[in-house]
Design a protein around this nucleic acid. Structure first.
Lengths: 206, 206
DNA sequence: GTCTATAGCTGGATAGAC
DNA sequence: GTCTATCCAGCTATAGAC
């Protein structure tokens, strides 16, 4: 708790983040499954064994990346939703837009989060938690929108939620399949996002 | 051209297919990117060098798998469409159903075709051709459906086609993310498929 | 916390005998 | 066409000096 300890922990945290950033960069170049600890070590100016001071295994590094991405994604969605005021439907749409937008801007994390490209890697429950929370909040927003009469009751059923997430997954999938490593900033997904949301809404608007 | 040569070629073709099948099986176990030539060789009762008699490199094996999957998928979609008679809209929907169905029943090929999980692998133009053809035929069906008054003119625009493929991609994505290696035969995707198609149709039906 | 050294393994691919 | 033998490269991970 004293200053020295804090400074040390801060330094350590900075190194950890440097390692994570380097790993993401490498994954953008070689593919998510193609990342190697040797490559990461080279990128941060370390020798491979030194990485084990920060992560006990390669899978632990993947898990940290998953946790970081999952948390940042959830935060981005929440921030977008909160900033819109109190209307649940507006918040829902802003959240969906933020969700897709974040994934498109972070294609490497997107692959790690949405697909499972690494043989043998399963995210830990802690790493997965933000996604679970986000899903629950999305559901709650839908229920609220129904209660307030902004959506038809059917919009809060399991099938409607599945359809909603599926539409969003479709947009993300389109983008990632065409620009897996985040090349040119194509406006394709934005052009797709509005009609897609409108299409879903048309089913459930009073 | 003589009988002996034919027999030899037939035998060779059978071996090639055995190798491809073994590779798919291994990819289901270890992940698409986790397949190894050593493992494939073991599975077919060969030593690794012998595989080079049939494929000049590991990437060539991936390409053959891509080509095979792409062709089979296109064939399945066409068969479903043709069997419905001459109504383009019915054919379109039957095709979409067949498309998703085939991918769900062949999750390993689906990952290879839809996602790009193998670092450094790009399908050759020949391997990719069936997918391109299929896309063109889908477009043609939409145009035909519009001409026959089964769909609104807007259904043949680029945006509508993008939305159509995106909806399908969403269903596939949902399924693959939850059952990447084709575990239990969950009826989830079928439950999702009909509402998803209905949702798109609602936008473009006269 | 960082290093050297190294274990220990697996992989893709080639040469050349049979 | 299949094999043995081998090359060479890369990787994760550990032991132990500093």
């Amino acid at each position: 708790m004293d200053v020295l300890k804090d400074r040390r922990q801060l330094r350590r945290q900075a190194t950890i983040e440097e390692i994570l950033a380097a790993a993401v960069k490498l994954m953008a170049r070689d593919g998510v499954a193609g990342m190697s600890l040797s490559g990461v070590a080279r990128a941060v100016g370390m020798k491979p064994p030194s990485l084990y001071e920060y992560f006990p295994s390669k899978m632990a590094l993947y898990d940290a990346l998953f946790a970081q991405g999952s948390a940042e994604l959830a935060a981005a969605v929440r921030a977008a939703g909160y900033s819109t005021g109190t209307d649940p439907l507006t918040a829902l749409l802003a959240g969906a837009r933020a969700y897709v937008g974040w994934l498109v801007r972070h294609p490497v994390s997107a692959q790690l989060l949405v697909w499972r490209p690494v043989p043998g890697f399963e995210p830990s429950p802690q790493a997965f938690a933000p996604s679970v929370d986000l899903m629950a909040e999305t559901r709650a927003l839908l229920v609220l929108a129904v209660e307030r009469g902004r959506l038809l009751p059917a919009a809060a059923t399991d099938d409607a939620v599945l359809l909603f997430t599926s539409v969003i997954a479709g947009v993300v999938s389109q983008q990632l399949a065409n620009e897996p490593l985040g090349g040119a900033e194509s406006g394709r997904y934005t052009r797709l996002m509005d009609p897609a949301m409108a299409m879903w809404l048309a089913q459930y608007t009073p």
